[in-house]
Design a protein around this nucleic acid. Sequence first.
DNA 1: GGCTTTTTTTCGAGCCTCGAAAAAATAGTG
DNA 2: CACTATTTTTTCGAGGCTCGAAAAAAAGCC
Lengths: 413, 413
Amino acid sequence: MSVGIRHDDLRRRNRAMVLSAVRRAGQPSRTEIAATTGLSHSTISAISSDLIQEGILAEGKPSETTSLKRGRPQVGLTLNPEAAAVVTVVLSLNFLSVAVIDYAGQVIAEEQRRLDTLTMPRDELIGECTAIVRRRLEDPDLDLGSVARIAMGIQGITDSHARAMLWSPITPLTDIPFADILEAEFGIPATMENDCNMMAVALQWRDPDRYRDNFIAILLSHGIGMGLVLKGELFTGTHSSGGEFGHMIHRPGGALCRCGRRGCVEAYAGNYAIWRSAMKMSEDAEPVDVGDADMRALAAKAREKDGPERDAYRRAGEALGFSLGNLFALIDPAPVAMVGVSAAAFDLIEPALREAIAQTAGGQHSKSISFDTEPNELPLIREGCAIRALTFVDQEIFAPGVQARAGSGKNVA
Amino acid sequence: MSVGIRHDDLRRRNRAMVLSAVRRAGQPSRTEIAATTGLSHSTISAISSDLIQEGILAEGKPSETTSLKRGRPQVGLTLNPEAAAVVTVVLSLNFLSVAVIDYAGQVIAEEQRRLDTLTMPRDELIGECTAIVRRRLEDPDLDLGSVARIAMGIQGITDSHARAMLWSPITPLTDIPFADILEAEFGIPATMENDCNMMAVALQWRDPDRYRDNFIAILLSHGIGMGLVLKGELFTGTHSSGGEFGHMIHRPGGALCRCGRRGCVEAYAGNYAIWRSAMKMSEDAEPVDVGDADMRALAAKAREKDGPERDAYRRAGEALGFSLGNLFALIDPAPVAMVGVSAAAFDLIEPALREAIAQTAGGQHSKSISFDTEPNELPLIREGCAIRALTFVDQEIFAPGVQARAGSGKNVA
DNA sequence: GGCTTTTTTTCGAGCCTCGAAAAAATAGTG
DNA sequence: CACTATTTTTTCGAGGCTCGAAAAAAAGCC
């Protein structure tokens, strides 16, 4: 039974709405906010006055808004960058990246490190993560008290509560509760989310026209991952981060997958699978790591002339096409973004993909399905983490429930 | 941009909440409602007083509530059966069924007809549907003005706005806007929904403990259909009713499906596919209609001894298992209800199904996945339609937005 | 400088929910 | 049978919130 609406909720939700409108629009006037939210001018005036007094919003420079119209000029409202800060942590294969981001969304500090995630013991991996965050938080320019949220993104399966990494291809370790670890270490609320989900969040933020209510982000890399947005909301499984698209079964009993099963999409379309197929190795051959440079060379060779390389990409496209078609049978077709190193070879993949998808129930209008490509996943993941964390601050800290209202950057426990 | 919350919304939502609480609990006291909704006693008192005055709720017989406790006895609130009525229309293969249901959910009239849906021309099919509804509405015992909603359920694909049948296995006709037709004919708001979705709604209503937030209803009949509930809400595709589970591709290029494609789940697990396989016909053989009695005989034979019949069910289980596993890879495992005539043969299907699902990423905890069976789909579909329609009345007519409040059963246009 | 236009703020009205207190309705008790 | 304890329901005033109208503010236009 969903709970009734209390009177206090009203203000809370409308505050959140105003913050969301400002974050989305950049520097909207009160009148614009009233229009997008559907609330009255008086309400917006009252709420924004509160938010300015609390140091969350600020009035923009009137000089910038060179109004050509007559009448009182609009005053743009902006997010006060100093109202809060968030930290993003992105952990991927052999690579750790941290950024500190102010409330307005600008990166104010960052640090990156190479490390050997595949062989690192548990304590060391956790230690590296906490250490790099600590270094950024110890920056004297940063007001530690204003850091309101840490958002970590990782390649692998996370639990649906955004607390822990359950399994990951970048390390043999399992069940690491990174969110709890970071929270305990720094006393700052933290989350641990799947990289592909963060990519989807970032795409929605970057291009809301194309990626609005329903779309799919697919990571074509060593493994195959997916972030799925349905009805405008990130879709996660009931227990895990969900969307194990890469391990849908393409051919029962087929090629050997890194996960130990047979016939997964990844066993045909992952980097190692394309490589294995191009090298005419057996479908049962143990998956090997292939570097990005090798993959680019492979793609170049496949573009050059017909042969096993081109055929490998064709098989990858077929696997992706049938599985996408199966997915579309369930959710109807939607825009797709292909991200990662093999997205740069999408020209080799696309023909077979479209041919396969046309043979499925979900591919009835396969002509109209459109694909975008983005070879570089890291910036997307970081941006998604940042948006996630900032949205949390907007909604839970600056528009809190019954708890005492947050004064001057103090976090709600 | 989602819209802000107006002050009027508050009452509206809380009225809807109270109605929902009464519908769910049967005869709750005001105190119980306050507890489940989290609203204060005063608020519940005010709202229920309004609702009683408007003739929507009524106070229950105090005689029934034989209180053993001392203190003022609780007064149960009930839905006033005469506050409104809804009509359900269920159209399935060669069968049309209509019921009139009062606001409290009791069937007050019904009628069923056999007709030859497969060969019927368009006008005649539409005519039969409107005629049967008209006969029920002309019943002199029925206050026509109180009929607030018509909910139609059909086997086949419907659009996501619940307006039209797009395609159906029970007729070669396509794109019939039944909801618009019924609305135009009777001036009563109508919907047209997929049968499996209505089954899911009914299951959630009947057994909310088992079927709460995430579950799946699968229709094992001539075709294979699915109703999917995620996060407590019916999941539909973006354009269509979604969940074309039966036409996920099990084996690329495999057996011929009724839909004309190859390798669909249905081409292995639909009644015609099981029959075809049991009769040792080619996988390319044209699908034929098989009667329920024949299917029951087939199942009996398969139980009796090993042979092509048992093998056919095994293959059906395998197809269902792999596809369910693929679905579970996306959404995580959830309780499943198997409905329809072949659900009665689920004992023959289950072993191979579980074996297949264990080979998929979604089947990691396949032991814990539980299946329920329900051989008779019609009552479920009707009940789902009824709940849908009544919930609509609760929310949109008796707790309307800015429009004038509904007086004494008059509909909002 | 006065007028028009547009944005923003102010102010009173109208609702809504809440908590506290009162009223209502019953069971126990001597 | 009167009185008390107990529980449910209603009443009532207080406090908040949003809204519309009007006022104030801040420009451009003539």
